[in-house]
Design a protein around this nucleic acid. Sequence first.
DNA 1: TTGTAGGCGTTATCAA
DNA 2: TTGATAACGCCTACAA
Lengths: 333, 333
Amino acid sequence: MAATIKDVAKYAGVSISTVSKYINGGRVREKNRQRIEEAIKALDFKVNELARGLKTNRTMTVGVLIPSLENIFFTSIISYMENILLKNRYSTIVCDYRNDVELEKVKFEFLMDKMVDGIIMVPHEEDIQYINKAFEKNIPVVLIDRMIKGIECDVVLTDNLNASYNAVEQLIMRGHRRIGIICGPKNVYTTQERLKGYIRVHEDYSLQIDDRLIKFGNYDVESGYNLLLMLLEEVPPPSAVFVTNYEMTVGAVMAVNEKNICIPHDLSLIGFDNIQLAKVVKPSLSIVTQPIQQIGETAATILLKRMKGDYDKFPSVYRLKTQLLLGESICNI
Amino acid sequence: MAATIKDVAKYAGVSISTVSKYINGGRVREKNRQRIEEAIKALDFKVNELARGLKTNRTMTVGVLIPSLENIFFTSIISYMENILLKNRYSTIVCDYRNDVELEKVKFEFLMDKMVDGIIMVPHEEDIQYINKAFEKNIPVVLIDRMIKGIECDVVLTDNLNASYNAVEQLIMRGHRRIGIICGPKNVYTTQERLKGYIRVHEDYSLQIDDRLIKFGNYDVESGYNLLLMLLEEVPPPSAVFVTNYEMTVGAVMAVNEKNICIPHDLSLIGFDNIQLAKVVKPSLSIVTQPIQQIGETAATILLKRMKGDYDKFPSVYRLKTQLLLGESICNI
DNA sequence: TTGTAGGCGTTATCAA
DNA sequence: TTGATAACGCCTACAA
């Protein structure tokens, strides 16, 4: 059905290799060039990328693997990555594993099956030795957002520890002493780092930590909702709460609204990740923001470098700075 | 580097075709089965999907193309589609075209290059004759969310016209007479349908339409923000506004907050698409919701059917019903 | 510059 | 059931 190089060659009256050479940017006689172009147009020829990939072992495609497509933080990053990648003639295959560790591996292997030339991923499982298989096949992998112990791999993340430190410090400076924190899953890197920041700032200010004010959730809206309600039932309740990702922040705000809690009078609140949310909520939310664009562009750039075979300074770790945007959701005590 | 069938055959002491047969579920002698399995394990053999696809013309992969990965409405749909697809052993390649008509075509062709077995897409450009090329190659395409005139294609969408009709009718029944509407881009199907609903309900209630209350945006946050401000400057201003997608609803709420407008006292508001947003905002937002799960599952199911070669009732149109969730953002006049 | 021919890793046909 | 062999569409020495 679809025309092949062979067909084009026949139509143009030249050999297969001449056509192939032309397609790949080689020099051909002017007359042949015209004939080939004409043939390509007439036959509506398109290179079969499967066959090409089989032969060349390159597909000019990079795979991107994230926990969930419904997480706007990750999908926004992808957008910036693609900017860079497309400029370098690479296409992108996006996959998610719906926060499912089994699926994470399956999808990773799917990308390998598709013979992508490189992979950018947000890992969830702590044991991802299968990444090494990629390296064995000379396929570079760049990790995003989360670090995995014991894996030699380039990684782009934010300074989660200090992001958290600064947010909680802000609350402390305004007089808060009982500060709740809504964390993600215990085994996730960002959770651990953000919690470390919370603990360290308490230590630095010689404040005692009440473990009941530390809640672990699932980085989803429901967790944020439930855990905020739980925090409010502690005695005495916290005067401020720090929520450590976007979805949980949404949930927390929902709970606050439902219980008719007055922010910041009854409760001070600091959220995470999404500037728009901060402005949608009233009073405007204080929020920790991550440099989404920089994350995406950095990851894409380092991957491009590795795909070129440049393994200078491998593995390198990029730890980008966050920002604390102050809104009207914090009060002094 | 990577082991091939040939290697496996040699290791197991059988022929290439025996191994191939085994891999594809054919019958082999018990003894050979064991040897082959052992060889596969020992050599860590994995089928080269490129070569397989080249030979079989099937990749067990479907392509999904949406306007933007940052649009949670579309990414949620994908999640439900994948559920169905995965159960049928199909993988998914997700692409977006960042609302760029040029890129839309490029990405469509990228998916074709990857030899996907089927495509589900949200079209933007009105002239997408290239879809027919897919059909010529026997690759089914299912359209989502938007219909394109003059294209014979299965399509899954919602009853945009009546969604809009019902929302505006609700406002009319509560006494509103000057109702603003914030639409998407003029040339997009959903915009046109949603506007039709607005117009029809005005006609049915014999209300005159003030064209100045009809604003066209870009389905993004900024549009929602700007257009709401513009509506407020009309004289007299509308007493109610209907915003016709999620992102613009977010923008509208931001504008409302910034101007310290009291909802619903100063202005009644109906938004679109996202239940969570409705609950985050205070007072809770009235909102039109689309059946995301049903859209995704329907699209996946019809595509599977077509990929099996079943072109019964082609092309079929699924027009799913929306819901109007009433919050506290509407008042009586 | 052009053409011939071999091979990339599979699957499929057809004898044996 | 098994195995030799010919495609699938492309790239790439190498020779002309």
